[in-house]
Amino acid sequence: MTTFQLADSGETLEVETRELIIAGWAGREQAAIDEHIEELREIGVTPPSSTPLFYRVSADQLTTADTIQVLGDASSGEVEVVLIGSPQGTLVGIGSDHTDREAEAWSVAHSKQVCAKPVGRQVWPLEEVIDHWDELTMSSWATIDGQEVLYQQGRVTGLLPPAELLRRFGLEQTRLDPGQVMLCGTLPVIGGVRAAEAFCMVLEDPLRGRTLAHGYRVQTLPVIA
């Protein structure tokens, strides 16, 4: 059970995640999809068979913790909008599709399964932002060799909007059922995909003058042969 909090009212909501979905290659424009494919091709990742693709990850990989543990030093985060199905309706949050880049070279599905998916506790109701969705912006910062650098930044206009993304997933309505959680795609990386000691992400709603933020540290476990 994960406890979320409505950012404006402070009301807490309990969600039992039963299905965790990662929307990959979810760009709105083919040029942006091709850019992300080339980013990952440079580190050995085979291009997708079609776009978007919806990967399933174990529900218990969702976490609001401020530290995750990973095997080896070849993983990295990706800022993503998160849609959360709750008994009170669909919620919007911010999260990271943390991914093992070495495993990604031979299996994208496997690479996503072996890393926790950090998400922030604070959320907004989807209904509060759906009418100005394209105004939202995402940013991420990575701490690399002790220095925090801007890693990703841009408006969500580069990604499929909720209605179209959920339609392609196979849903007829713009909402998720309680217990369904979907990470909705990421932005191009500034300076190339690389590992970090810590990762911070922000979702900004400039129309209402508010933000959602979450950060986490990465604890690297040794690879023992």
Rank of each mutant, 00 (worst) to 15 (best):
T137P: 03
S86L: 03
Y216M: 08
S140F: 02
R41Q: 14
A31S: 12
L150C: 09
R210T: 14
H132R: 11
G95M: 08
G93W: 02
M1P: 09
Q219M: 10
Q88I: 10
L62H: 00
L6G: 02
D100L: 02
V114M: 06
L203A: 03
L53E: 15
G185Q: 02
Y216R: 03
R56T: 12
H110M: 15
P48W: 05
V108R: 04
P52R: 00
E16K: 10
V82Y: 00
T90E: 05
E19T: 13
C184G: 00
D177F: 11
V223I: 14
L6V: 06
M182D: 01
S49N: 13
E204K: 11
A31P: 00
S50G: 08
E38G: 07
A74Q: 15
E104W: 05
A103C: 13
P52A: 07
E127F: 11
G24M: 12
T12L: 03
Y151V: 06
G209H: 07
R217E: 15
G85A: 09
I144M: 14
P161N: 04
R101L: 14
I94T: 09
G85Y: 02
I33T: 07
T46I: 14
G72D: 10
K117V: 03
V81F: 05
V15Y: 08
T17C: 15
C184R: 00
V202H: 06
R217M: 12
A163Y: 05
H98V: 00
G158R: 10
T137F: 03
G215M: 03
P178M: 07
E102T: 14
I22Y: 08
G27L: 01
F54V: 10
